[in-house]
Amino acid sequence: MTTLPAPAAPAGRRSARSRQSAAGPLFVAPFMLLFVLLFLAPLGYAAYLSLFQHKLIGGTSFVGLDNYTKALQDPQFLHGVLRVVLFFLIQVPVMLLLALLFALALDSGLLRLAKVVRLGIFVPYAVPSIVATLMWGYLYGPDFGPFAQFSRHFQLPQPHFLSSSWMLGSLANIVTWEFVGYNMIILYAALRTIPGDLYEAASVDGAGAWRTAWSIKLPALRPALTMCLLFSIIGSFQLFNEPKLLQAIAPSVIDSGYTATLYGYSLAFTGQQVNYAATVSFLLGLVIVIVSYTFLLTANRRRTP
């Protein structure tokens, strides 16, 4: 009797372990199933589609990598990509700087009505981007929008928000308005995790508010800032909702290839060139992966020393 439990225990442990090893895949299975069905399968299908060409007359034929060589020489696609790069270079620094300022101001504890301010800055993020763009589209109205009416009333030069030279800035303004609050919350949350003894040590050393911000808060924010930048890279390259909606009120400024995603959409739904649209989407995805990965590599390398 006394000897019985001894061999039983390892056996039980072994079966528990095997049960555990069976449970692992089982727990992952639902995710993997959806992942394969909803991500990998469409991705593979798009890759497959991008190797064909469909014509209204003549049907579908296999063309190998022809679509890719065509896309790499397609001025509309390349301009679309370059435009979002320019957009990224202008808009993201402005947005993150604003987010950083607001986060530092909130964290400083010197602000009155901090909760109201925090909510006020965050609320635009809760507004769907479609609604936000429709609203800004109305505000931008060249004749009867409030800015136009205001400047006309005071005999000021009229703003041309929807002209070709202003458009990228007008789009950047909408996107900044939408996402400053989101980035601010991320940065603010990161600031709240800084242990209080660091501040105490700083004040013992005689550091003022600015010195504390520069030497303690900013370094601590680095991971959060990296993440915000990464999201911004991806978001910028996928710029779609805002230009798509403003197209209705500025049709001769925002053409079908204004941004790369807009171009893919136009190819699929205007030109019925599904295969070429898949190619363009794939290439855009590739650009995003390369840019994001390069960014992460450089960001990580700088942090190691």
Partner: peptide, 21 residues
């Protein structure tokens, strides 16, 4: 987030394609 987002990006783009496939 990189891989997930880029998959999302590609999948989103693909779904237009797939719809008319």
């Amino acid at each position: 987030p990189v891989s997930r987002r880029s998959f999302l990006a590609a999948a989103g783009a693909v779904s237009l394609g797939a719809a008319l496939a």
